[in-house]
Design a protein around this nucleic acid. Structure first.
Lengths: 238, 238
DNA sequence: CGCCCATCATACTCGCCAGTATAGCATCCC
DNA sequence: GGGATGCTATACTGGCGAGTATGATGGGCG
């Protein structure tokens, strides 16, 4: 009867929503469910979990709330799914790194690079910011265990690096916290400043972590003509 | 009518609330106001901003909601005050560091140490997690400018370090993000794991940042598969 | 003593939002 | 064509929590 194809009236939004072109293939539940999750991730990312209503998410999909509930049982589950989607990327990173035929520091750096990319991805915010406090005890436990798994994975790589000599002596726990923290924090500012890709940021971070701030004797130093900062080089230079 | 003094039934909370002994000196508005802010900070820290009602805060002080509103105009302002309290600690750090007669890297490290302590303090969570999205546009702008000020301060120190040669060549912006991120993240896990003081954590982080993961030729290396011993101690020994 | 002001509690309002009841419409299969 | 089933909208409920109206209490001060 009615012409289903007349949806070209509006210019298409950046992200295609399966509903726009709907009516043709109605059997792609999974596709739509994914679209719901992604839309939720984008909204959470923009306004935060608590400031995003399910009506907002539905509106972003040009749909109404019950439709969202048709694919998902609760707002909490929505957050959880986004979290898992993000974490999965990182687990892959660990699996891949395990195969690399390089010292532990190299494997760690590879993980960190993927980690950074994941945090800068669309699920980054949800993964990083999923608060135990916002979730039911059951999900809270689940999320904590997943987070802990990643933390332990990093510590493990650091320990291996200590053993094979590819990493400078340090405390694995603190090191893991420092590394993960720096990367996690990307989720906070990347939204505002997308001048670099996630991969570029991650690469820059890895360089900083590996090299450290203190100049190395071997490194090419630009002995700047800037006025030499006289006196007591060693006071805090250690 | 009701005897307000019969509150000995419960064990006293860790922090004394001025209302407990009230009735004697009633002119210490500021003291009470501070107590409200601190109580808010503790509750936000425990349960998050959105999961904390003003009734909760009032209850923590053994008071009712209107009393809280007597000292503060809104929940938003409460968060803002906590934020400012935290930031102020960091601004002091910058001022103090400016006086130090050492190369820029030393001044930077000094700032970072204070920074870390501030994040681990009771206002740390509020300072770090105050979301622009949760606040009115006016306050959001205010908070952003304060945050930016700190960010610029760190970048500045990094640039100075590049010029006086005390810092390895790097991108100041990325470096500032990495450093601040690692420290900010402390607020996320410190609540759960208080096995170290803020100062210890900050010191450990600074050591990692300065040295980097890649072993230095000069440093004492445990060659190859020899079991590394005592790795934690020297990292924390500062 | 009686007024004023500071301080606080009881008891509301009011809007937002997660979640739901119900029903409409389409398609598929017989 | 007549269910059955998948998908979606309209229109509701119920609760929580920010903020407030009102009024009690009690001390300071003339």
């Amino acid at each position: 009867m009615n012409n289903r194809r007349t949806n070209g009236s509006k210019s298409a939004p950046a992200l295609a929503s399966p509903w726009r072109t709907s009516r043709e293939r109605l059997r792609d539940r999974e596709l739509k469910r994914d679209a719901v999750i992604r839309a939720a991730a984008r909204e959470f990312n923009r306004k935060g979990y608590h400031n995003t209503s399910l009506d907002d998410i539905a509106a972003a999909l040009e749909v109404t709330k019950p439709t969202v509930y048709y694919y998902v049982t609760s707002k909490e589950q929505l957050l959880f799914e986004c979290f898992v989607a993000g974490v999965e990327q990182i687990r892959v990173a660990f699996r891949e790194a395990r195969q690399l035929p390089v010292p532990a520091r190299g494997r760690l750096s590879a993980v960190l690079r993927h980690y950074g990319e994941a945090v800068a991805s669309e699920f980054g915010w949800c993964m990083v910011r999923a608060e135990d406090q916002d979730l039911s005890p059951a999900m809270s436990r689940h999320i904590k265990s997943l987070k802990s798994e990643i933390d332990q994975g990093i510590r493990r790589l650091v320990r291996e690096g200590l053993q094979d000599g590819s990493i400078e002596p340090c405390d694995p726990k603190m090191t893991a916290f420092a590394l993960a923290g720096a990367l996690n924090w990307i989720a906070h500012w990347y939204r505002e400043d997308q001048s670099l890709t996630g991969a570029q940021i991650a690469a820059a971070f890895v360089t900083i972590f590996e090299g450290g701030l203190r100049p190395r004797r071997g490194s090419l130093r630009i002995e700047s003509r800037a006025r030499p900062r006289r006196r007591t080089r060693d006071a805090l230079a250690r």
